[in-house]
């Protein structure tokens, strides 16, 4: 399949008084049409900023995309003019944000917010747009659509608002939807409803999906491919099966051992990753995970490990990647 989106060595930095924050530091990955890719990592690892960079939504100042390429169907999005990128946003690439409470405009009706996008991008008139909006709400499982379109966001629950966001994202038939923590603010049964809806619609309509989340379970259930990020870099990437069954980076191994699982008996031991994620203004020339890594050796303090293939399309950025199968050393 042809590549839909290719990120090459993307670098996004924030210039703050405390120093330069390398929020995204040389990220490369690609997505094929219709594919679902999960990006996992903890707060501040750069997963959201890398996604915002795709649509050039990083606030400037203080942020700036300082290098790399973002090829979307062969075009480099970083070279487009403001007018051109606006045609991509919401039309060819749509976004679903985390906060369904704040990402809708409280003083516009739901209907107006959906039709605005349609009129802007599809060049259809108000009536056609209204008809399409009814259809879209039906598609995302909101009944009584005609009445609901006249209501305001505060009439909707969190789950319903997120359905509206999905309807808006789908409205212009995009090729790619970026969902940034789409269900983090929602209860678990509503989370399941929204994720099933997104999976179902993206498969049916052949839309590619990037899910950004810290929830390893959500990625396991929905993603075909996974990128694991740490301190602004992709430290491991591969198919979901490879990442979960044969993790090849100490951080991925650590994450999987540290999450309590629904299918594990009570009291199954958790092995936390000790220490804290690093301050992104104070990174040195070594591997950023080194201070928390039990496999770290001399070379890890001297050079940043490159992302290299470990086999079968799985990549890991670790100097010790061939030695990771060793059991945990006994604690002193």
């Amino acid at each position: 399949m042809a590549k839909l989106l290719e990120l090459e060595d993307l670098r996004t930095q924030f210039f703050t008084t405390a120093g330069t924050v390398k929020a995204v530091d040389g990220v490369s990955y690609d997505i094929e049409a219709g594919e679902t890719v999960g990006i996992v990592g903890e707060s501040g690892c750069g997963k959201s900023v890398s996604a915002l960079s795709i649509l050039r939504l990083v606030p400037d100042p203080p942020g700036k995309i300082v290098g790399g390429k973002i090829l979307f169907m062969g075009r480099n999005l970083l070279e487009l003019s403001d007018v051109e990128i606006r045609k991509v946003r919401g039309h060819e690439i749509a976004m679903v944000f985390q906060e369904p409470m704040t990402s809708l405009n409280p003083v516009l009706t739901i209907g107006r917010q959906i039709t605005e996008t349609l009129e802007q991008h599809m060049g259809i008139d108000r009536q056609e747009a209204d008809a399409r909006a009814v259809e879209l709400l039906g598609m995302v499982g909101i009944s009584d659509a005609e009445r609901r379109l006249k209501q305001y966001p505060h009439h909707f629950s969190g789950g319903m608002r997120q359905r509206v966001m999905i309807a808006m994202a789908l409205s212009c038939e995009p090729k790619l939807i970026i969902a940034d923590e789409p269900t983090t603010a929602l209860d678990v049964t509503i989370q399941a409803q929204i994720l099933e809806l997104m999976k179902d619609l993206t498969r049916r309509l052949g839309v590619a999906l990037i899910i950004i989340t810290h929830n390893l379970g959500v990625v396991a259930r929905y993603a075909d491919k996974v990128n694991v990020m740490y301190a602004g870099k992709i430290v491991e990437k591969g198919s979901a099966r490879q990442i979960y069954h044969n993790p090849s980076h100490p951080y991925t191994i650590g994450l999987l051992a540290s999450v309590p699982r629904l299918d594990h008996k009570r009291g199954t031991k958790l092995v936390p990753i000790e220490g804290q994620p690093p301050d992104l203004t104070l990174l040195d020339q070594g591997c950023a995970f080194r201070p928390r890594c039990r496999f770290a050796e001399d070379i890890c303090t001297r050079e940043i490990p490159p992302l290299e293939e470990v086999g079968g399309g799985q990549y890991s950025a670790c100097w010790q990647k061939d030695k990771l199968s060793q059991p945990a050393p006994a604690a002193s």
Partner: peptide, 24 residues
């Protein structure tokens, strides 16, 4: 409630039935 919680294992997830509870 339990069916709605995903498990961090794609193998297990592909075998689980994803019944979604309706309504809020």
């Amino acid at each position: 409630l339990l069916a709605a919680v995903p498990v961090p294992d794609p193998e297990i997830e592909s075998k689980r039935e994803h019944k979604v509870m309706k309504g809020e």
